[in-house]
Every structure is written in C-alpha cells, then in structure tokens.
Amino acid sequence: MSPCSRDARLFWILSASALIASGLLLLILVFLAKESWPVIQNAGLSKFMRSDGWYPTEGAYGLLPMLAASMAMSALAIIIAAPLGVASALFCRFYAPPLISRMYRWAIILLAGIPSVVLGLWGLTVIVPLILAVSPPGTSLLAGSIILALMILPTVALTTEAALAAVPMTYWQGAAALGLSKEATILRVALPATAASIYAGILLAVARALGETMAVLMVSGNVVQLPSSLFDPVRTLTANIALEMAYATGDHRASLFVSGLVLTALVLALAAGARRSGGQIVHA
C-alpha cells in the first residue's frame, strides 16, 4: 500500500471514530429532548423552574429544589475536595519521602476505584449516624457532600499531580538560580504554571459530582425541599430520576427526562464556562 493511501485510510478511520463519538452525544441529547418533549409541550418549561412542589402525577413539576440541592451538594463537595486534593498532590510530589508518596498515591487510586454504592453504604453506617448525633435526621445535604467529596478527591489529586509533574525542568532551574525557596517555587511558580490544568481537573470533578447518583441517593434523605441548612435532607436531580423511573408513566416519566435534560444542560454550561475562563487563568 502506498504511503498516500495509508494516510487516507488513517484519515477515514479517525474521522469515523470522531463522528461516532460526537454522534453518540448528539443522539443522547436528541433522545432526552424527544422523551421530555410531551410534558414540556403540555405544561411549558417554566412550570419546572418552580419550587411549589413535585407531584408530577398531578401536574406540579417544581424541579427547582432538586436543582438547588444538586448544585449545593456539588459546590460543597468541591469546596471540601479541591483544597484537600491539591494539598495532597503537593505533599505527595514535593514533601513526602518516596515510599510514603508511593503508598499515598496507591491509596488515592484505590479510593477512586471504590464503587459508589460501597461509599454510600459506608456513609450510611458511619457518616449519617455522626451527623445524626449533631442534628437529626442525619441523612442530609452535608452527608451527601462529604461522600461526594471523597469520590471526587482522587480526580482533583491525580490531575493536580499529573500537572505538577509536567512543570518543565527549566522553571525549577530558573527558580533555583534566583535563590527562591522551595516553598516560593511551589506556590509562586509551579502552582500558577499548572493553574489551568488544576482548574480543568476541578471542573471534571464537579461534573462527576453533579452526575453522581447512587451514593448520594443513599445518604441524603431524598426529601424534595429547598435546603435551608446543611443538615436538611435533600433530593438531587439524579436521585429523583433513579427513585421514580421504575414506576413512572406518561407525563411523570417525561418529566423525569426533563430532570435529565436540566442536569445535562447544567454540566454543559459548566464546561462552556470553563472554556471561557480557562485561558485567562494561565497568567493570573
């Protein structure tokens, strides 16, 4: 085969792969829109952005409390996980002795591999009773956030560490030649140099947190309400779908697809926001 036709073959293989990947995403979006269309047409999208109750069989489709719960829980989770993840990556990379660093990295990878349902079980038997002792009922926004934080911490830690490992040697040499301390080199050179990648890792983690279902469903109580404190039980959009899909029919079923659509829109908006601000962070 001539180089030219080999090139053409590779081109077609790659194009087809790209088309399949993007086509699948499009198909999912079309499917979501199609399945939710009947109820959007009947009730109007505005009916969903309310908090006056979720009784989908009686025409009350207030998704707002669940949207708020999803966002609050993910936000709290990342507030816990981002500093811990970045700090653990810094420790692992720059301060831990090699053996500890290796063991710690293993632990993080292991944590990433724990199935969410197992984390949920653990949360239900350990975290929830602890919170209950402070303020009942225990299953709450806080419990969900803590479990979510544990789930997304490895994402933040591993992406941060990979980014730090990619800091060019010339920066370290340059900083050392200027007589900068290790601390200054890490905080003032390495971290700014990797800010964009760390930020990308954090967004990846938030997207995962928003989409997480099982563990959240097990520990957060699943009451449809706007949370007024960390100890309130809440229901997230994902939990809503998982809880009701089994028996929902008609407009109720369609309204669950609206939940999915809203969730997807949220993640896409997040990704779009990330792209816009990502470039500026490099030189912050």
Binding site: P168, T170, Y171, Q173, G174, A175, A176, A177, L178, G179, L180, S181, A184, R188, V189, P192, A193, V282, H283
Partner: peptide, 27 residues
C-alpha cells in the same frame, strides 16, 4: 539562596515564568 542571589544565571532556553512581566521581576 544568598549565594544564588549574588550569582545570577541565564539559561540556553529563555525561561520566564508563566506570569506577567511584572510578576516575573517582582516575585
């Protein structure tokens, strides 16, 4: 650190930090 403050070094490949011009000098 004090030694390196008195003995500056310039490398083959320019290696300004990925910061602003001012921050590079100020830091």
């Amino acid at each position: 650190r004090a030694l390196r403050r008195r003995v500056g070094m310039i490398f083959q490949k320019p290696n300004p930090f990925p910061l602003s011009i001012r921050r590079n000098l100020e830091m």
